[in-house]
Design a protein around this nucleic acid. Structure first.
Length: 716
DNA sequence: GTAACTTCAATGGC
DNA sequence: CGCCATTGAAGTTA
């Protein structure tokens, strides 16, 4: 792929001044909730420095009306000449305090902070231990983290001082499984202290990733918690609201041009996700624009649009989009002609001013008929506009938009993969159509777009693990008595009980949380094969290709968009005992051994944990190194081609379903985040970053392949 | 097909 | 004008 010119040639980049919500506020919902929170992340983790997650926006308790956001996000693409940009003299809404979630009494207290309203904002002041956000009680320290990414120690003492009442809390939580769910769903709120102290990275890419991961973690967990009650709807909105109310969002101002940390081709599964990363603010409206309040109506400019798909021209010209204006089509009111106001007016103004507008296109989610995927397709400008009669007889605005040249591929990658999926023969540069020789349900294509390298050396394609010796049956196989399928409401399901009381997958099959050991239903369970607790045992469901990366050997990517939590594949191969390895069986680039999980993996659950009433220490913290070692040298599957990255998009999860020896679980890979089609799949081989003492016997065993870090984006 | 829901900007009252 | 509470507009999701 041609590499995208960075967005540096976009003119008119303009950042508003940051609107500031001083992070504090009356988040006091439930004082005692605070007290009982336990820090969920070990403060001592060597790689996790809270300061490195310093929240970019709310740095100071003082409202930063005058601080340009560019200070927080230095933008290289900001052109010098833009100081004459009219936008600069016409401050947009964001420069002024908006009804932010923070100092905002109007924030409906009932929504998330039921008790807070009863207390004046600063009541914690006299008692810093009472869960006062660091930013408030220690403004100076807080300030420090603006400049330093390393100095986090000042916080750790404070953070540690909170688990005062953990015991009581846990107790309380334990009995809450069935009966208290109602209460929980009403009073749900984040553990704010943690939310604050683990705030976001100053690196835009990382903070976008962080917010996205936290959102979906929250969302999956809320879905899981709410599933057996009536409230089990719209977990996306609930998770989104929590994020918003806690200031866990970024690029919180109207930005014209690229949004830091969001790249062309990035995919989203909910509107609210685009809102919390600042790509497109309105929860519903398709046109996002600057505010008229201070600039005047004639000055409002469109900053981004979402094309829901109905009106796209469907020829192959992915550079042109004909977009329909908004309004006039309400289901609740009489239909009428669209008016030249709001978003429609903004687009019209943008046509005159020729400013860049972000375009998000949508597509059908191939794995879920009822939902959409949103693809950020980069910057466009409005070229023409006209009105025409819609089918219902009323007139609508039309805007012809042209994609700015020189950007990396966006929707065109999507269209390409769709074509390949429909007919794999249309894929060029194929070396072998299916290296699995039909062992997988879907063909695994071998391709080389780079040079004439002909393929990896021979191996036997297998879809599972082969045990070289007998397993110790340390416990009986799980066997639940659920009729038909296991359901979250069935508290008697013994498989759910093994997974700390919950079914580990959502109804659509995504992993809710990373857990030390996941028990799927087994052959002795009475439930059927359609039971949702049988995900990985049913095998791979993605259209993979093994491709030549050029300088990092062979890699794996998918033609499908992959939602966070989706099962990717097993690490197949021959199981070797650790002891065998000592004797001669050399570990090589095709050896998998369990290792310390990267910090990113332990953060994967963070949203779910911040949510929780329960200090769930059955998380990554107690993961032990397992003796299982798998060699995929002679036989294996696509997993043997997964490369390492320090910024991985895949994690591994031990899963049990066919035997009782927990030392030798299946190693199953899941998506850590939403992965656009044609993005290389990588996981963190671990080990190297592990604290001393837990490296195990083979400190380098898993580090034999090259690190891809820093070379993000072969295709994407 | 319909109900339930969100954010944000604008507006009106004080 | 500032502050606030309220309202209307926008469409998505299950």
């Amino acid at each position: 792929m041609d590499n995208s010119q960075d967005e540096s040639e976009n003119d008119e980049q303009e950042l508003d001044e940051s609107m500031e919500n001083s992070q504090d506020e009356s988040e006091s919902d439930e004082q005692e909730e605070f007290l009982e929170k336990k820090p969920l992340r070990p403060c001592t983790s060597p790689e996790q420095s809270p300061a490195s997650f310093g929240q970019p926006l709310p740095k100071s308790p003082i409202p930063l009306k005058a601080t340009p956001i560019s200070a927080a996000f230095p933008m290289p693409q900001h052109k010098g000449g833009s100081s004459h940009d009219p936008l600069k003299e016409t401050p947009m809404s964001a420069a002024f305090p908006m009804p932010g979630p923070k100092d905002e009494p109007s924030d409906d207290p009932l929504k998330a902070t039921p008790i807070s309203a009863a207390f004046p904002t600063r009541r914690h002041k006299d008692d810093p231990l009472k869960a006062t956000p660091m930013s408030r009680s220690f403004p100076i320290t807080r300030h420090e983290d603006e400049s330093s990414d390393e100095d986090y120690k000042p916080f750790s003492g404070q953070k540690k001082s909170t688990p005062l009442k953990t015991a009581k809390r846990t107790q309380q939580a334990e009995c809450s499984n069935a009966g208290n769910t109602k209460r929980r769903s009403i009073q749900r709120s984040l553990n704010r202290e943690l939310a604050f102290s683990s705030s976001l990275s100053s690196n835009p890419n990382e903070s976008v990733e962080e917010v996205m991961i936290m959102f979906d973690s929250l969302r999956r967990r809320i879905l899981q918690l709410d599933e057996n009650e009536d409230a089990g709807k719209r977990a996306d909105l609930k998770a989104g609201s929590l994020m918003m109310q806690n200031g866990l969002r970024i690029n919180n101002s109207k930005i014209i041009g690229p949004v830091p940390g969001v790249e062309i081709g990035d995919i989203f599964f909910f509107r609210i996700e685009m809102c919390i990363v600042g790509l497109h603010a309105p929860a519903m409206a398709g046109i996002d624009h600057t505010s008229a309040k201070h600039a005047g109506k004639d000055e409002i400019l469109a900053v981004s649009i979402i094309s829901s798909g109905g009106y796209e021209n469907d020829d192959n010209d992915t550079d042109i989009l004909v977009y329909t204006g908004q309004g006039g089509n309400s289901r609740h009111k009489d239909k009428h002609d669209q008016k030249l106001e709001g978003g429609n007016l903004a687009l019209m103004n943008s046509m005159k001013k020729k400013n860049l507008i972000r375009v998000v296109r949508s597509a059908q989610d191939p794995f879920c008929n009822s939902s959409k995927v949103y693809i950020y397709d980069g910057l466009y400008r409005v070229e023409e506009s006209w009105t025409e009669k819609a089918k219902n007889g009323f007139s609508v605005f039309k805007y012809k938009m042209r994609r700015e040249p020189g950007q990396r591929d966006g929707i065109s990658v999507w269209k390409m993969t769709e074509k390949w999926k429909a007919n794999p023969a249309t894929r060029n540069n194929v070396i072998r159509a299916d290296i699995s020789s039909k062992a997988e349900k879907l063909p695994v294509c071998l391709v080389n777009d780079v040079d004439d390298q002909k393929g990896p050396s021979y191996f036997n394609y297998v879809t599972g693990v082969e045990h070289s010796g007998p397993l110790r049956k340390t416990k009986p196989l799980q066997s639940c008595k659920c009729p038909s399928v296991c359901l979250p409401s069935d508290t008697n399901c013994s498989c759910a009980q093994l997974n700390s009381g919950y079914l580990p997958y959502s109804a659509n099959g995504v992993l809710v949380k990373h857990i030390p050991m996941l028990y799927e239903c087994s052959s002795t369970c009475q439930c059927c094969q359609n039971c949702r607790n049988r995900v990985t045992q049913k095998g791979v469901n993605l259209n993979f290709e093994v491709f030549w990366t050029g300088d990092s050997g062979w890699g794996v990517r998918s033609w499908d968009p992959i939602r966070a939590g989706t099962f990717i594949c097993e690490y197949a191969g021959q199981i070797i005992d650790e002891t065998n390895m000592n004797m001669g069986d050399e570990e090589d680039e095709y050896t998998f051994c369990t290792s310390w999980h990267s910090d990113k993996v332990s953060r994967w659950n963070l949203g779910a944990e911040l949510l929780e009433e329960k200090s769930d220490n059955a998380t990554t913290e107690n993961l032990k190194k397992l003796p299982v070692v798998i060699s995929a040298k002679r036989s294996g599957n696509v997993a043997r081609f997964l490369n390492h990255s320090c910024s991985p998009n895949v994690l591994w999860q031990p899963v049990q379903y066919d035997h009782g020896d927990d030392s030798y679980p299946h190693i199953m890979f899941f998506a850590m985040k939403h992965i656009p089609p044609m993005t290389e799949l990588t996981y963190d081989y671990g080990t190297r970053g592990a604290p001393p003492g837990i490296k195990g016997k083979f400190p380098n065993a898993c580090k034999l392949k090259k690190c891809l870090c820093g070379k993000r984006g072969l295709m994407h």
